[in-house]
Design a protein around this nucleic acid. Structure first.
Lengths: 233, 233
DNA sequence: CAGATTATTATGTATGCACATAACATCATT
DNA sequence: AATGATGTTATGTGCATACATAATAATCTG
C-alpha cells in the first residue's frame, strides 16, 4: 500500500490530530521528530514544523527543544473570548443598541481603585457610569475610572452619546491588560439600574488596561441575570 | 541616519506594534505590503509574513489577499482562557486538592440535557455529581452527564476517587465543544453543597463536548461566591 | 454598456538549505 | 563523586525562490 502524501501543513495537522484522537499517539507520548515525519509524509520539514507549531499553540502538543514533541498529557482546552465593543456585541445579536450616560464626574476613587490603578490616593480620576441597552432593555451597566494623566483628552469628552467603552478603544492605546470574570449579587443600586430584582446573580467583567507602567482605565461591566458569555473549544 | 535592521520576526512584530501604538498607522489604515516592509526592514518577506500573521491572529491586524493588510479598526481583545483540570487549577493556586463524589447513577436526564446532547429522550445517561475541594473547603460543584454510547468505559468507573473531570480528559477524546460562562443564584441544594448562603451569586461554567456528531459529556461547574476567572489581554 | 474574461496584485504557503539555540548526554578534570 | 567543558540533537528561525489563491482591476465582447 502506498501511503498518501500530505503536501500542505493543514493536512499534516489533520493527520496528527487524527492519530492523537485515534490514540495511536497517547497523551504523554513522544512523537517522531520533524525530520522523520517530513520523510513519512513526503513533505519538507518546514511544513511539518508549521503544523506542529500550530498544534502546540492550541495546547494539543508540548514541544521542547532537544526534548522533542509529545502529546499534551493534560490537554488544556484554550477558550478564546473575543472581547469587543458592547455596541458591536449587541448588534451582532441582531438587537438595537442603545446607550445612556448615568453619571460623569471627576472624583477621588475608593482606595481599591487607586490601589489597583497605581494612582496616587488623592488624585481625582474621571468617573463614568453608564448603561448599555439592547432593544431598549438594560443590557450592561458600565462603571469606569479613567486616568486623566494618561488620557487627558478624555476630560474634554462628555461621554453622553458615545460610550467610554467605544471612545477609549479608539483614542487610548494600551499595551496590555488584565481581565477577570466573576459572579456578584446585585446591590439595590445596581438592581435598579439594570431593572432586575435586588440580589440577583449578575455576571461581572472587570478589566484593567495599562499603557506601559501607567494604568489607562479600570472598568466593571455588570450584565443582567441570564447573561451568558459563550465560545467554542 | 541609517535605519536599524530588524532581523527576526519578533523585532519586526515589535516595530509594527510600536507604529500602531504611536498612531503612525491608525486603526483602519492600510499598511505597506510585505515586500515593501521586508525591504525597509532589511529582511526576507517570509520574516515579515511571520510577524504580520501572528499579529493578525491576535486581532491587531486585518489581512485579506490582494486587499492588503490594515490596522484593525475595531481591535477585538482576545482573551485566552486555559481551561484545565480542576485539580491542576487548585494545585496551581498552592492549595491542597480534594475530591468527593456525591452521586453516581444512570438516569434519564431532563429534556434540556438530552436535547442539548442530542440523545434520545428515554436514553439513560451516566449522571455524576461531585465536589472539588481546595484546602478542604468547597471549591467547585460538578454536575455532569456522560453519554454511555460514546464512552462505554465510563460505565465501569466508580468516579469515587478520580473525578470524571480528570478521567474523561484522559479516556474520552473529543473533536470540539462549546463553553459558556454565566452567573446564577444558588439553589438551596447547591448552597448546602458549596457551604454558602442560599441565593448566593455563583459563577457557572457550562461545557458540552462532542466527538464528531455525538455528544460526549455535558457538565456544569459551579464556583462559590468570590470566585474569579482571570487572564491577561 | 452590462456581463464575462483576463490580468494583476498581495497574501499564503511549500521547499531546500543554513545556522541558532535550548536542553540533555557524555566525558574529562579536580 | 561533584563540577565543568564539550558534543549532540530536536526544535526554532531566516532566507531565496517558486508557485497557489483570492480578490480586485482592467479589458474585451456581445
Amino acid at each position: 500500500m502506498n501511503r498518501p502524501s500530505f503536501r500542505n501543513w493543514q493536512s499534516v495537522q489533520e493527520e496528527v490530530r487524527r492519530r492523537i484522537h485515534a490514540r495511536e499517539w497517547k497523551p504523554g507520548d513522544l512523537i517522531p521528530n520533524e525530520s522523520e515525519l517530513a520523510q513519512e509524509f513526503g513533505c519538507a520539514r518546514t511544513t511539518v514544523n508549521r503544523a506542529l507549531r500550530s498544534l502546540a499553540e492550541s495546547g494539543v502538543l508540548d514541544r521542547r527543544r532537544k526534548a522533542g514533541t509529545r502529546v499534551a498529557a493534560q490537554p488544556v482546552a484554550k477558550a478564546t473570548l473575543d472581547i469587543s465593543v458592547i455596541r458591536i456585541e449587541v448588534e451582532e445579536r441582531g438587537q438595537k443598541y442603545g446607550y445612556q450616560r448615568i453619571e460623569r464626574d471627576a472624583a477621588v476613587p475608593p482606595l481599591a481603585i487607586s490601589g489597583a490603578m497605581k494612582t496616587s490616593a488623592q488624585r481625582p480620576l474621571l468617573h463614568i457610569r453608564a448603561l448599555h441597552l439592547a432593544d431598549d432593555a438594560p443590557y450592561a451597566f458600565e462603571d469606569r475610572w479613567i486616568n486623566p494623566d494618561v488620557v487627558p483628552d478624555a476630560m474634554q469628552e462628555p461621554f453622553d452619546s458615545v460610550s467610554a467603552n467605544e471612545w477609549l478603544l479608539r483614542h487610548a492605546p494600551y499595551t496590555h491588560g488584565e481581565i477577570a470574570f466573576s459572579a456578584t449579587s446585585a446591590t439595590p443600586d445596581e438592581a435598579a439600574i439594570l431593572g432586575c430584582p435586588a440580589s440577583s446573580a449578575l455576571f461581572a467583567i472587570d478589566r484593567l488596561t495599562w499603557d506601559g507602567a501607567a494604568s489607562v482605565t479600570k472598568v466593571r461591566l455588570l450584565f443582567g441575570p441570564g447573561h451568558q458569555l459563550r465560545t467554542v473549544l
